[in-house]
Design a binder for these strands. Structure first.
Lengths: 219, 219
DNA sequence: TCAAAAGTGTTGGGGATACACCCATGT
DNA sequence: ACATGGGTGTATCCCCAACACTTTTGA
């Protein structure tokens, strides 16, 4: 079976990340992700998912976090391994890419953006309007989006796109943006209020109308 | 971001497989998986998941299939990537293991077994009674079992453990073995008969009692 | 004719959807 | 006062678990 081999230098290991966040656009918030313009061949000049080589002394999760920090200067509110892509022909040289996906709180992204600390060669794109990407990155981004949309249905990750405290309407709008369809406000409320994870606070968001109670996750 | 590096030779890429099949035991069929006894350090003499180094000219799926064939001399009825394990300390040297999980038709396993073509150093173990395994393989096997049990609930993979044609009772017993609990025969029937994937044949399984219609998947 | 598995019918509870309605606030 | 979003109540539908019941075979 397995054995020492002198030929393993032909395979390199990379870690990439599909990073989702909400950013305001003309028609309300949109689900977007950051891409990096490649400065080297292959695919020089094309947009690609953020990533880098795996450091031999670094855990996979740590490499994904590092990639994320190098791209956005932020910590993710959610991070999960997505899939490992390693077809022989996906790159001119043999590269196995371990891909993670992550969620960023929209308020932190906005703050970082306006602080002008944005790294070079990074730009945010609407997930429904991505350019042609390097390698098989379009396929990877689509796969990550599938996973996000699916997972929103049976977990509480959607709150990872919001600040710690949020109104139920804000949370519903996240769901609507991610899923791409409208949800009934009253049913949405009942559904989530039934969850033990979601706890009401004594704070309210005041605005033009009746103040809305703020909630938080994880008691 | 990413760059050429002269240090990547410290990382080796392996592919392993968690292979499930049903095998008869005293108390009916049990869910089992094959393990390989290690003939080299580290962990020489311990049981481990089947696996091997990724060949630079080989797709990931192909490497998983090859591992499976080398271990069982069989083709899987289902094969899916599980997860990639790559913590720095999971092995004395840096190894990133891309793990797959697979289902084998029980009839083929039995046939292969009685044909005395069983490879050396391979033995089947009950998934609920595994020995202490090399590396982090106990954790990996547990994770694969979770995935199987979960996926049985919303897909038709369970039939991958049976021959092409089977009775609904046989299929129900597969579910019961995998999930570890009893299911109502009549409700199980209605549930699956509603699926378009499951098609009745004109064949019947005769036995001690009323003959049961044979079904098959995928029309 | 009886035991046992194959297969059908019926009922009731829980969750999801649709939607009518009341509440609280800024203007 | 009224527009608007916050929040509650309720009827309906559908899925599914529970279980009583009929059918078909071998012995």
């Amino acid at each position: 079976m397995s054995d020492e081999t002198g030929e393993h230098d032909a395979i390199r290991v990379a870690v990439s990340a599909v990073i989702f966040s909400l950013r305001s656009a003309q028609d309300g918030d949109r689900l977007m992700l950051p891409l990096v313009r490649r400065t080297r061949d292959p695919h020089r000049g094309m947009w690609a998912l953020p990533g880098g080589w795996l450091d031999p002394a670094e855990d996979l999760d740590a490499a994904a976090s590092r990639t994320l920090a190098e791209t956005t200067a932020l910590m993710p509110s959610y991070l999960e391994q997505l899939y490992t892509f390693g077809d022989v022909d996906r790159s001119p040289t043999r590269v196995v890419s371990i891909v993670y996906w992550a969620l960023l709180r929209s308020d932190l992204v906005d703050a970082q953006r306006s602080a002008a600390g944005a790294p070079e060669n990074v730009e945010w794109f609407d997930v429904d309007d991505l350019p042609a990407l390097a390698f098989d990155h379009n396929r990877i981004a689509a796969y990550a989006l599938d996973r996000l949309r699916n997972k929103v249905g049976y977990s509480t990750i959607a709150a990872g796109l919001l600040p710690d405290e949020f109104t139920l309407t804000e949370l519903r709008e996240v769901y609507e943006t991610v899923l791409g369809r409208r949800l009934d406000p009253s049913n949405f409320r009942r559904l989530l209020e039934g969850s033990d994870e979601l706890v009401p606070t004594e704070h309210f968001r005041t605005g033009k109308h009746r103040p809305a109670r703020l909630y938080r996750y994880h008691g």
